[in-house]
């Protein structure tokens, strides 16, 4: 292949340019299409990130450790407000006075570390 001849052929090749108006119409349509595609992509990406973050936050709340659930349900005696404390004491007193087996009730209170009540009622002997 003669390189220079090839170059010459290419340089001198004839062509007719496309019509300006139709070229512009296609150009602006394509431009809008690309903008729309970019916006959709960014929206999809943002939504994906939000779902991922939300999912991570949610799954981090899940646990198989029962003591965590249990500890959420039982507020330690030391941080109870006065009203709640009073209610708990009344409840414990009711259990002690109405139980069929006082020793079983006292064992239960012991298990939940309700020492104050045990001491107060002297093991139910008073």
């Amino acid at each position: 292949m003669k390189i220079e001849k090839q170059f010459q052929d290419i340089s001198q090749s004839q062509f007719s340019a496309p019509d300006g108006d139709s070229f512009l119409e296609k150009l602006h349509n394509e431009r809008q299409r690309r903008i729309g595609k970019k916006v959709s992509f960014l929206n999809g990406l943002s939504a994906g990130i939000i779902v991922a973050v939300f999912g991570l936050i949610t799954t981090s709340q899940l646990t198989d450790d029962p003591t965590i659930f249990a500890s959420n349900d039982l507020t330690p005696l030391e941080i109870m407000d006065n009203e709640t404390e009073e209610f708990v004491y009344e409840l414990a007193e009711y259990l002690v006075e109405n139980s069929d087996d006082i020793w079983e009730t006292l064992t239960f209170l012991d298990e939940i570390e309700f020492e104050t009540v045990v001491t107060m009622n002297n093991g139910g002997l008073e």
Binding site: A17, P18, G20, F23, L24, L27
Partner: peptide, 8 residues
């Protein structure tokens, strides 16, 4: 648009 038509 005019620029494009000129240089197309």
């Amino acid at each position: 648009n005019e620029l494009v038509k000129r240089h197309l």
